[in-house]
Write a protein that binds this DNA or RNA. Structure first.
Lengths: 328, 328
DNA sequence: CCCCAGCACTAATACGTATTAGCACCTTGA
DNA sequence: TCAAGGTGCTAATACGTATTAGTGCTGGGG
């Protein structure tokens, strides 16, 4: 039953011109080819009448532009467990893509039978789009390198330092934001702090640690780093007055520490936002939506050829909260 | 810098065969073309040596399908306000798309400058995919009809009865689920019920009303339908013992009624799930994730040519809850 | 010695669009 | 009248792979 979708050749036949003419007219005549107004209108009318829609695959094969941006996530794009942290980014991505007239291709990472693979073929499929956003805590370096080497435009959401800075990214400035949290503690008189981080070496984790450690060092304040455990009584014996905890998608460290600290007189801050929401816990807000927007912006710049800064770190907004006490 | 990616022609040259041979060998020889083991190995070796990876764009142009499913939403795909009700559907869609090896195109509805239009051109663009899912409370009938008429595969998420049943859909059986809620009230002795519904004539609203009204009629129970207001004292004077409220994305009716009923001895049920979550409120669970999955399944069936049932209604899961009292 | 049946492979073409060189025609000015 | 220049359009080709009809070759049977 399916009538074939109309193509330029059909329009050409209807309007009594050649396929090339149709392409020129519909393409907005970028090539500077002369065309009479009369012909132009005839072609447009025919296209309208047939309900023509350009084939994006053919467009891309012929010209390497189809106004589609890829979105490759290393987990499901719509994850079930960490919805709260992914979602705002996606909102930003969609927002900006719409604003710039780009559609989005979600690569499901499926190569036919179910299993989600992130092998080279899967990643290379992103080339169907004009460019692609990548989003995930880790990087399959080899595959990404091949993409980068072919000059394919891509932007990571989140800071990356693999491939000696050849990966463009839009991330959050966790270093400064984390340092600011420590600075605040220091200004309120805390001289002995524990930092609980998770067992992950993604940049978002290491950046936070760096911010905390450097700020503590600058202030001459003691700050020991521990992982994923909360012997609160011991800490208090050691003279600790404040606990800072990393916040990741899993919330693992956060929950453990929060539970242990609750009801004590320890000050408490989180490097991000607590999963339960609210503004009472001291920390900072990651500008996820803005990250999504800027990533799209940068990607489109890469595609069109004059990118701004290839490595962007957006500032996080401090959340004062009420869980840090003045101990001066 | 960009060295050209190797193509089949390069392999062919290296192996001393034709491009067609390369295609046949690398394509796993689906067409039943005979090929000597020797040649096969030579080609594979050459491909390996050059690091060949097929160009997905060309692949998709040459074969008729592009293995992309469209997803057209009448609001932003990633809405900021109704995340909870949209999201599970998207999860299901992505899940099943991945399982069936399909990528997803999100139509941002952008025609250049920001504003989201749903004119014919916007909807027509969905044809760049092999088929498209539509998702929204209302239908731009004229535009959709044109699509349907060309035989373009599409599936609505949510029941639709426009175009005399020519629109395939996967929806939820709100009629039965709503009736079941009333049946439960009746079985607990309620003989006078108020139904508060919202001011919307989308199928999801009218179906709920129908279920409620019919169930009440069958049981010979009084059930008056009101819109969006909650004069609780008046109801109680009239002998009402239970209130049923529709639940939509806006939560408007729900919130009003819930607040008014709270603290009274009126029983209370919702035709869906309350926005605050939990399982204490009597109602039912809409199988959103499953709807997403099945919609994808049906769409792919339409594309490949042997669709099952074009109109599917999925059962909702009853949630007993504790807000309905036994008044026998 | 010829014919036919496989065998191993390839030429040709399709897919739908973009791009570019250039053709045929017209106008203008000398 | 002719060259120069302009106008409006098209032929040809590229993009990289899939598909199919067919071609040349070999060997075996008659």
């Amino acid at each position: 039953m399916t009538r074939r979708a109309p193509r330029q050749a059909d329009i050409a036949a209807l309007a009594g011109v050649s396929q090339a003419t149709v392409s020129v007219v519909l393409g907005g005549n970028q090539g500077g080819v002369r065309m009479s107004e009369d012909t132009r209108l005839r072609v447009l009318a025919a296209a309208e009448k047939l309900g023509y829609v350009p084939d994006p695959v053919a467009t891309r094969l012929a010209s390497r532009r189809n106004h589609m941006l890829g979105l490759y996530t290393f987990k499901a794009t719509f994850p079930t467990d960490v919805a709260d942290s992914y979602y705002p980014i996606l909102v930003g991505v969609e927002e900006q893509a719409a604003a710039l007239g780009q559609d989005l291709i979600l690569f499901t990472g499926a190569d036919g039978r179910g299993e989600r693979t992130h092998d080279e073929a899967a990643i290379r499929r992103t080339k169907i789009a004009d460019g692609c956003l990548f989003f995930g805590r880790h990087v399959p370096v080899a595959s990404i390198e091949k993409l980068v080497e072919t000059g394919f435009p891509l932007v990571y959401i989140g800071r990356r330092d693999e491939l000696e800075g050849r990966i463009p990214f839009v991330g959050a400035d966790y270093v400064s934001a984390s340092a600011a949290v420590v600075d605040r503690l220091v200004s309120l008189g805390h001289r002995n702090v524990r930092y609980v981080r998770e067992n992950d070496d993604a940049p978002s984790s290491t950046d936070r640690e760096r911010g905390v450690v450097e700020a503590a060092a600058r202030a001459g304040v003691e700050c020991r780093v521990v992982r994923d455990e909360a012997p609160v009584d011991e800490w208090r014996r050691d003279g600790v007055t404040a606990v800072v905890v990393e916040e990741t998608d899993t919330h693992a460290a956060y929950r453990a520490v929060r539970a242990a600290v609750d009801g004590t007189d320890l000050s408490f801050a989180v490097l991000g936002r607590p999963p339960e929401g609210g503004t009472d816990v001291t920390g900072f807000e990651v500008p996820r939506r803005e990250m999504g927007r800027r990533a799209v912006e940068l990607l489109v710049e890469l595609i069109t050829g004059d990118p701004g800064d290839l490595h962007q770190l957006l500032p996080c907004t401090p959340v004062p909260g009420t869980t840090v006490k003045d101990v001066r």
